[in-house]
Structure formats: structure tokens, C-alpha cells
């Protein structure tokens, strides 16, 4: 995919992308309570990168991402697997959800849990999978 020459798209992409990425993290974190979650957030985040890719080309998008999307894929699967085992350590059956409440400075508490780790794994896998495909495809396009 050659980069687009439209000035409007390029400018808009530059502003929209960070917002979209931020929004995807927001969706991911609130997913347990409100509509959202790993799948949706992952789709939004990959949509953000794909928008950037369409306006600036695949090479720019790659260097923006810094990591290979395949690494994201692997990291996502590892996160998913990692959430399986903590239960075993405290003597619960495999995959039982574990919750940890960490007191934060300022009086609040931080809720951490294996479902959250798992959701992050889903998020990373979705982003990694979609970007792996799209990058590969547009690379082939621009090589051809």
C-alpha cells in the first residue's frame, strides 16, 4: 500500500491515532464493568495503526510500532497462558481467578487480577494478529 497523498488524511491520522490508542487502553481497562474488553480494545488499537499505515505507508507504521507485530502476538499468548497458573500456587484449581488489592498512595486501591492479565493477553493477541496480517499484506502490495 503506497502512502496516501491526501493532506487531510495524513494530518487527521496523526491526531487521531494517539487518541484511538488511548481510547483502546481505556476500553480495555473498563471492559470488566462496561462494554469494552480485550477483543474490542484490540480491534480499536489495530484500527488506529492501520489508519496510520494507510496515510504514511507500511515502513513508517513499522518504525512507529517499534516492535514486530509477531512479538505482540507471542506476548499476548504468553500473557494468556500466564494467567492460568497463579491459581495453582495458592492451591486452587487451575485457571481460578485470583484478585489482588494493592493500596495506592492517596487512599485508593488498585485492583489487579488474573482476568485482567488474561484480557491484556487477548488485547495483545488481537493487535498482534491483525497487524501481522495487514503488515504482511501491505508489504507484499508495496513490493509488487
Amino acid at each position: 500500500m503506497n502512502e496516501s497523498n491526501t493532506l487531510i488524511l495524513r494530518t487527521a491520522a496523526l491526531f487521531l491515532m494517539p487518541l484511538q490508542l488511548l481510547f483502546s487502553v481505556f476500553l480495555l481497562l473498563r471492559g470488566h464493568d462496561e462494554p469494552g474488553g480485550g477483543f474490542i480494545a484490540g480491534l480499536v488499537a489495530s484500527g488506529a495503526v492501520v489508519l496510520f499505515l494507510f496515510s504514511y505507508g507500511v515502513r513508517e507504521a513499522r518504525s512507529l510500532l517499534r516492535v514486530d507485530p509477531r512479538d505482540l502476538l507471542a506476548a499476548g499468548l504468553l500473557f494468556g497462558l500466564a494467567s492460568v497458573f497463579p491459581a495453582l500456587l495458592v492451591g486452587d484449581p487451575l485457571m481460578t481467578a485470583q484478585w489482588w488489592y494493592l493500596p495506592m498512595p492517596g487512599g485508593g486501591t488498585l485492583k489487579l487480577s488474573t482476568p485482567l492479565i488474561f484480557d491484556i493477553g487477548v488485547y495483545l493477541t488481537v493487535v498482534g494478529a491483525i497487524l501481522t496480517m495487514v503488515f504482511a499484506l501491505s508489504q507484499a502490495e508495496s513490493d509488487a
Partner: peptide
């Protein structure tokens, strides 16, 4: 999903 992506790649 990961397998599909690796397959495409």
C-alpha cells in the same frame, strides 16, 4: 487467531 495470523504471514 494467532495461528491464522502466522499462516497469513
Amino acid at each position: 487467531l494467532a495461528l491464522a495470523a502466522v499462516g497469513v504471514y
